[in-house]
């Protein structure tokens, strides 16, 4: 498992695959899921996702967003190569990769 990235959540600020994370490994770190990223879907990454109307089927997008949010937390101004490196564990079968990259760049800019 841990092949597709759709189940990505945050352990602290780090993106992890929940399908491969035993509860024993959580310790005292906070877990954030897509439902907890923001109260109203207004995290900069979520807003950028809407602005670029990224989703097709949408199944992978929660994981994509969590990976992107974690990336921007540690690297607020990622290059294309940084984005590729951070996001290549998240498969999108519909092929929305270009819009995901655009959205991450928008979120990065809007983050100041």
């Amino acid at each position: 498992m841990a092949q597709c990235g759709a189940c990505t959540v945050h352990l602290g600020d780090t993106a992890v695959r929940s399908c491969q994370l035993p509860v024993s490994a959580v310790g005292k770190e906070a877990i954030t899921t897509i439902e907890g990223l923001s109260a109203k879907g207004d995290h900069p990454v979520q807003k950028a996702w809407l602005e670029h109307d990224v989703a097709q089927c949408g199944y992978c997008q929660a994981g994509q967003i969590m990976s992107a949010a974690s990336l921007l937390k540690s690297n607020p101004k990622p290059t294309d190569a940084d984005i590729d490196a951070a996001m290549s564990g998240n498969i999108c079968r519909c092929g929305t990769y270009l819009r995901i990259k655009e959205a991450i760049k928008s979120a990065s800019t809007n983050n100041g």
Binding site: A30, I31, T32, T33, E35, G36, A39
Partner: peptide, 27 residues
């Protein structure tokens, strides 16, 4: 996966959850 987090939060199992599972239902 979803209800685990909610249940853990209600049980106060020492986990600091930033998840707002209930309020997000009112998005």
């Amino acid at each position: 996966r979803r209800s685990f987090l909610k249940a853990s939060m209600l049980a106060g199992g020492g986990m600091m959850l930033s998840v707002s599972w209930l309020s997000s239902a009112k998005a």
